[in-house]
């Protein structure tokens, strides 16, 4: 029997997505689920506005949450634009290589904790190699139209399910928005009898 599916919508430009990643991926360790990583374009590249007040609050709030979770945050390089799209392309390649978790964690740490610029060859290569990915394969993914189509499909699906922000987890049609709803999702998975024995 196929394991239950959980979709995990994520943006490399979202610091809340970064905070969600260690616990989000760990769900697959704790529960009998297939966790499907779905990288999407940043809100600002999807035509949604992000007011200044929201941007300021997000930085302050994420810093407090990162401290609480013991995650590095503060040496930032905002990847809006090429940095985000390049990470998205490589994340699809990483899925194919069975290393999505490693890549997403390495990219998050690079962008939000080490000011790595994934729009540059040097920056992205460092992230890819930290994730154990072959650099030539990553470079090929950056110009692969099929990979670009997969990213577009993920982004479109987030819109189709009626959601606006990330991270979002979807289990049996129910959406869990925010890194602070992972515990609620875990409760639902537990109630569904999916805890690993």
């Amino acid at each position: 029997m196929a394991a239950a599916r959980v979709d995990y919508f994520y943006s490399f430009r979202s610091p809340y997505s970064y905070l969600s990643a260690p616990r989000g991926f760990a769900l697959a360790d704790e529960f009998e689920i297939d966790l499907h990583f779905r990288g999407v374009l940043p809100m600002m590249m999807r035509g949604e506005s992000v007011p200044v007040a929201k941007r300021l609050h997000t930085m302050r709030d994420v810093k407090r949450e990162a401290d609480r979770l013991g995650m590095p945050f503060g040496r930032i390089h905002d990847p809006l634009g090429d940095g985000a799209t390049r990470c998205l392309a490589v994340s699809e390649y990483a899925i194919d290589q069975g290393r999505a978790r490693e890549f997403v964690l390495a990219a998050g740490l690079g962008i939000w904790g080490e000011a790595t610029d994934p729009a540059t060859e040097e920056g992205l290569r460092r992230i890819c190699e930290a994730a154990g990915l072959d650099w030539d394969g990553c470079k090929a993914a950056l110009i692969d139209p099929l990979i670009a189509a997969r990213v577009e499909a993920n982004t479109n699906e987030l819109v189709e399910i009626g959601h606006w922000g990330v991270p979002v987890f979807v289990f049996e049609g129910e959406q869990f928005w925010g890194q602070d709803r992972i515990d609620d999702l875990a409760l639902v998975l537990s109630d569904a009898g999916l805890a690993r024995r």
């Binding site: 300021l56 930085m59 302050r60 810093k63 503060g74 040496r75 930032i76 990847p79 809006l80 610029d117």
Partner: peptide, 16 residues
């Protein structure tokens, strides 16, 4: 300034 310095200053100031 927009991608690195600004966000870093905001984060650093928030810890005061």
């Amino acid at each position: 300034a927009e991608r690195e310095i600004g966000p870093r200053v905001i984060v650093a100031a928030s810890t005061v």
